[in-house]
Design a protein around this nucleic acid. Structure first.
Length: 260
DNA sequence: ACCTAAACCTGGGCGC
DNA sequence: TGCGCCCAGGTTTAGG
């Protein structure tokens, strides 16, 4: 399931494949996922491609395309892989890009600059940017002191791009029990969590993301799954059996020994 | 205003 | 073997 590191990996590859190209034709195979408005992008050149949170933006010479993969979105370039799940096909002079979605949870929309700005302003700070300082993290925590720490980490309006995998991993590395309330965290725990979150995201980006279930980037699979400490695991790296609970209506693994 | 939980959707794993 | 239930989870929406 693509979170920040997976989406970042996909964006780097999309840039290599389609940046600078002109969209000559678009086939829409599922109009629920791929809004018919994206046909406005026909004839437009892709000037830039970037990530914001878990969203992908194609900046066109006129307007923008906004993609959200949710859990099962893929891209493929000049390949007929996962053909039955193709929701949209973008044709270029010398190739084609498909967007596939197994569970059809994602979306593709055409947006003018104003609409895009309104959409992206809802997202919180980028955790790998300079802006995400320890002071900034403290500021965010202060606003949400009553909520649960893991639920807070998943709130895209506060920090953009963290999902269920990396929230659990960061909490493990910080030694914090995911059931804790924000207000119960000491300043040294906050420091460890801030550091743990950045570390785990950076490492995952360098390994081109985590491949579990459906995630595949354009050029293959990610490598972070070998570094996972708790997500989908039975035991933590120190060999303790993990506990599984539901927090914020999502499955959550943690180590009752390492995380307090 | 706050939080929780269902809904969206489909493939895969598992139990019977 | 095969049917069917349940689970996965990002985000929105509905309900409490």
């Amino acid at each position: 399931m693509p979170e920040l590191p997976e989406v970042e990996t996909i964006v780097q590859q999309l840039k290599k494949k389609v940046k600078g190209k002109t969209i000559e034709k678009i086939d829409i195979l599922d109009s629920k996922v791929a809004s018919p408005t994206i046909k406005k992008a026909i004839g437009c050149k892709i000037d830039e491609i970037y990530r914001r949170g878990k969203s992908i933006v194609f900046v066109l010479d006129k307007g923008n395309l906004l993609f959200h993969l949710r859990m099962t979105g893929h891209f493929h370039y000049n390949e007929e892989k996962f053909k039955q799940f193709v929701v949209a096909k973008f044709h270029f002079k010398d190739g084609f890009l498909t967007h596939n979605s197994i569970r059809k949870f994602g979306h593709i929309k055409f947006m003018d600059n104003k609409e895009l700005e309104r959409e992206l302003i809802k997202l919180g700070v980028e955790p790998l940017s300079k802006e995400f300082s320890l002071e900034k993290f403290n500021e965010i925590l202060l606003k949400k002191s009553k909520s649960n720490i893991k639920v807070m980490l998943l709130d895209q309006s506060l920090i953009a791009g963290v999902g269920n995998i990396y929230a659990q991993e960061a909490l493990y590395h910080a030694g914090i029990d995911p059931r804790r309330k924000v207000s119960s965290l000491s300043s040294s725990e906050i420091k460890k969590l801030h550091h743990g979150l950045i570390r785990v995201l950076r490492l995952a980006v360098s390994k081109r993301g985590t491949t579990v279930e459906n995630y595949v980037h354009i050029e293959g699979s990610g490598g972070f799954q070998s570094s996972l400490a708790v997500y989908g695991k039975g035991k933590c790296p120190k060999g303790h059996s993990l506990k599984k609970v539901v927090i914020g209506s999502r499955g959550t693994s943690y180590c009752g020994v390492c995380q307090r």
